[in-house]
Nucleic acid binder design. Structure first.
Length: 268
DNA sequence: AAGCCGACCAACCGCAGTTTT
DNA sequence: GAAAACTGCGGTTGGTCGGCT
């Protein structure tokens, strides 16, 4: 039953890679392409396990890696993506060409966390540090019906007169068509977020579902026409308010338009 | 100059989901 | 269908370096 082991752990090197090992790996992948990590070490003459080879290639040897310092724009993008996705480093990395999940994860832990703390923002929740932890209720669901930990997600809050209306953001994956139950069920808190491809003629129009317009998660991240596009992204409505906080204009996660008005969290 | 400490980051570990036998 | 390996991901560790005392 099953397959044979990927490598003899007793005969593999560990620790830092040498120049020679790098060269061997690069040369092999140039010739044979990526993949087959199980057989790669032996075929390439490396005393490493396939897992280690894969990591080395993906994080440091790939020719399309950018390396070097992160720009301010990249900083802000990472923050916004993290507020939406939480610690989904691979997804975040997918939106930053030339950056790897490991690199972004390290950068987050060493730079951005501190940066946010200095701004008075909790890096985990993206809310002001002195704000009570219960108010916002953003839910992003990927492939499970279990709501994602609230603390790892962002919220866009609006204050309308005396009543606080919480704008929640909910993603629906392909398999999931029912938004996660929000707090304050008496309020209409179906979600509204930008429609990134609304004005793009080459993209299929979002379909409507009972007054809401749906786009897939891929579209919401600016991946229109990608293979992941399924156009099931739910756009709901925020309570009854049409006022101050309601934004229009569709760009990637509201970077320009402020649909996800991250900067509103930087106050004070 | 030596020692300490914190920042940085490459690499490892363990887990979960997927694939193969 | 079950078992076992594979793959990919996120969390964590440990080595290195630079600044400070």
């Amino acid at each position: 039953m099953g397959r044979s082991p990927c490598c003899e752990k007793a005969h593999t090197n560990k620790g830092a890679w040498t120049k020679e090992e790098d060269d061997r790996l690069i040369a092999y992948i140039r010739t044979h392409g990526e993949g087959c990590w199980r057989s790669l070490p032996q075929a390439a003459g490396l005393l490493r396990c396939g897992k280690s080879c894969r990591l080395r290639w993906i994080n440091y040897l790939r020719p399309d890696l950018k390396r070097g310092n992160f720009t301010e724009d990249e900083d802000e993008l990472i923050i916004k993506l993290h507020s939406l996705l939480g610690n989904k480093w691979s997804l975040i990395a997918g939106r930053l060409p030339g950056r790897t999940d490991n690199e972004i994860k390290n950068y987050w832990n060493t730079h951005i966390r501190r940066k946010l703390l200095n701004r008075g923002i909790d890096p985990a929740s993206h809310r002001p540090l002195n704000e009570p932890a219960q108010e916002a209720s953003t839910t992003i669901s990927f492939s499970t019906t279990t709501p994602v930990k609230e603390e790892s997600l962002s919220s866009v809050k609006e204050e309308s007169n005396k009543d606080k209306i919480i704008c929640t953001t909910a993603f629906l994956c392909k398999e999931e068509r029912t938004p996660v139950q929000e707090r304050c069920p008496d309020l209409n808190l179906e979600l509204r977020i930008s429609l990134p491809c609304q004005n793009q003629p080459d993209h299929p129009q979002p379909f409507k579902t009972g007054g809401t317009t749906s786009l897939c998660f891929a579209c919401s991240l600016g991946l229109q026409n990608s293979k992941d596009c399924s156009c099931s992204f739910i756009v709901g409505t925020i309570g009854s308010s049409s006022g101050a906080g309601t934004k229009t204009g569709y760009d990637f996660i509201g970077m320009k338009s402020g649909v996800l008005d991250y900067r509103s969290l930087e106050m004070k």
